[in-house]
């Protein structure tokens, strides 16, 4: 443990917080999870032997190279895919099908286009048996929370990408799930909006009792948001490491520039990208683009 490269930034406060998290009751328990898909008659192993436990009110991010099955993992937890082997326990109960205890926010906008913002947020409440008259004020409260009061009666197509995802988040949260699964929810947003949404999300998360399981391929995002980062390996997806993020909470405004942040990022990069193909043949391709003989005397632009 002492030899871990990130330990130098783990202050006693962070250490203390991490230890306290691990003492909380586990909410989500993934045990020996296997999943493979059939593709053109061949079995492709997506996840192998995944073991992980998320604790109450923890913020987990999952990163890994493409093809590591991180989306599949989220969909398995949501109950949108069937489990081949192993099990996923929610509060000790086996997950077999989708349920309102696990909310999900998708990468593609998944608001119901024929419903207004308010009706979208009310959807889950009504499905869980609430009457319209009680669901409405509750939905309005959530809409207030993310600052969309003016858009209560708007249709999704009238909203910007960030606003749509805010509605998608509160629609999932309104059902009071124990776990919120987020599958690259901000990937389609521009960087400025993405940061804003990340801040929103942290603020919401700090104020309610929810465990967030956040899939992303953006390492900055993962470090900024997570308590612990689950790093997956690809082909097949396995747990490579679970990284404790050595940053204090709440996150400082300049946290992106802190040495701890950069160090963590460099470390994660070494984990995620170590076996990906090196761009060694790029040079040859560039020469082809120049359309001149490799040996001819062309001044280098550098």
């Amino acid at each position: 443990m002492n030899s871990h490269p990130l330990n130098e930034w783990i202050t006693p406060e962070i250490q203390d917080r991490n230890e306290r998290i691990l003492k909380r009751p586990p909410v989500l328990d993934i045990q020996q999870l296997h999943k493979s898909f059939e593709h053109k008659g061949k079995q492709i192993e997506v996840l192998r032997n995944v073991d992980f436990t998320a604790y109450k009110r923890e913020f987990i991010c999952v990163v890994g190279p493409s093809g590591c099955g991180k989306s599949t993992l989220a969909r398995l937890i949501a109950g949108l895919e069937t489990i081949d082997d192993g099990s996923i326990l929610m509060d000790g109960k086996k997950v077999t099908s989708p349920g309102p205890d696990r909310g999900m926010v998708f990468q593609s906008y998944s608001l119901f286009p024929w419903m207004t913002v308010k009706e979208n947020v009310m959807f889950g409440l009504i499905e869980s048996g609430m009457s319209k008259t009680t669901a409405e004020p509750e939905a309005l409260q959530w809409i207030d929370l993310v600052g969309l009061e003016k858009f209560t009666e708007s249709y999704p197509h009238q909203l910007s990408g960030g606003m749509k995802q805010r509605v998608a988040i509160i629609r999932a949260l309104a059902n009071q799930p124990k776990v919120l699964l987020m599958d690259e929810p901000f990937a389609a947003l521009d960087p400025k909006n993405r940061l804003k949404m990340q801040q929103y999300l942290l603020e919401i998360w700090q104020n309610i009792d929810i465990t967030i399981f956040f899939i992303t391929h953006d390492l900055d995002e993962a470090i900024y948001l997570a308590d612990r980062i689950l790093v997956l390996d690809a082909h097949p997806g396995r747990v490579k490491e679970v990284v404790n993020v050595p940053l204090p909470r709440p996150r400082a405004n300049d946290t992106f520039l802190s040495p701890a942040f950069m160090g963590t990022k460099a470390y994660l990069e070494s984990l995620v990208h170590h076996e990906e193909e090196e761009p060694e043949d790029m040079e040859d391709k560039l020469k082809m683009v120049r359309m001149v003989s490799v040996n001819s005397d062309v001044p280098d632009i550098f």
């Binding site: 949501a78 109950g79 949108l80 099908s97 989708p98 349920g99 309102p100 696990r102 909310g103 999900m104 998708f106 593609s108 906008y109 998944s110 608001l111 119901f112 286009p113 024929w114 959807f123 889950g124 499905e127 869980s128 998608a168 629609r171 999932a172 059902n175 699964l181």
Partner: peptide, 25 residues
């Protein structure tokens, strides 16, 4: 498909899902 999956994760399934999500969609 995200609409159908969203409705499933919101606790709406079966014929009710068809009536509330698929048909209007």
């Amino acid at each position: 498909i995200a609409l159908v999956e969203a409705s499933l994760t919101l606790g709406c399934k079966g014929l009710r899902m068809i009536r509330r999500v698929v048909l209007p969609g």
